[in-house]
Amino acid sequence: MLRAAGKYRQAFLLGLQGSLVYRWNFAVRGFFSLFHLAAVFILWGAAFAGRDQVGGFDLRQTLTYFTTILFLQFLISAFNEDYQISEEIRQGLINQFLLKPINYFLYRLSIFAAARLVSGALILLPLAAAYPFIHDALAFPGEPWRLAAAVPALVLSALVQFTIAYCFGLLTFWFLEIQGLVVLSMAVEAVLGGQIFPLDLLPPALHETARLLPFYYQMYFPAAILTGRIGPAETAEGLALQAGWVVLLLLLAQALWVRGLRRHTAVGG
């Protein structure tokens, strides 16, 4: 057990080194994301002009939600993991993992965790720089239970994010080019994950439907816990649903891996 953990610890450390090489890339990306935050502040500021609340929340709560979403995008989102997995399959690099006593999913998950640790830390720099200008616009609820509930929600969200990206990457066993499908799904994930607008602003029937889908648990759910958009009962129910989706997605990933390997032909060294 400890030896197995040691393998993935090494993979994590390698991932950490690899991500640190691209630290400037993450930093530039983080800096430009402040433009996005500025656009969000301007748009929603204009939408709130002359009214105290939109959808039951005030402007500060809404801006806090979007700032949290921005941080979570760097902390738990899958960036290009699907593309990396796809390339490893396409170029035959995956063959080396088939011959070694290593679980490819856990190997990739370790690298994902390292990459998010780096990007999650680096986004704090532009956010810290912007803090003097935006802190008046932020209003976190300050209830301790929210932080306690957010920790498992964030871990499960990261797992949902990674496993969906992993499944898309494995589609390369069937399709030569998956980039179009990935970007297509990004649009769906962005909307149903609450990155474009808080999902509670949708009509109630659509919001309820979105709550049953895995995308809801990618980003909106932990952000809604942290920013006070959902209460304790909905949080508890959401955690159970989120755990259910993680199990289902892990089963899907395993099924795709087993079936995909049957189609895979390893050629060369």
Binding site: A47, G50, R51, V191
Partner: peptide, 23 residues
């Protein structure tokens, strides 16, 4: 892909105007 992303922008406008008359 492009059509979906255009749809995302359209949806944002529709959602905001569900709750307000003017931006």
């Amino acid at each position: 892909v492009e059509l979906f992303w255009m749809g995302v922008n359209l949806l944002l406008v529709e959602v905001i105007y569900r709750h307000t008359d003017s931006i």
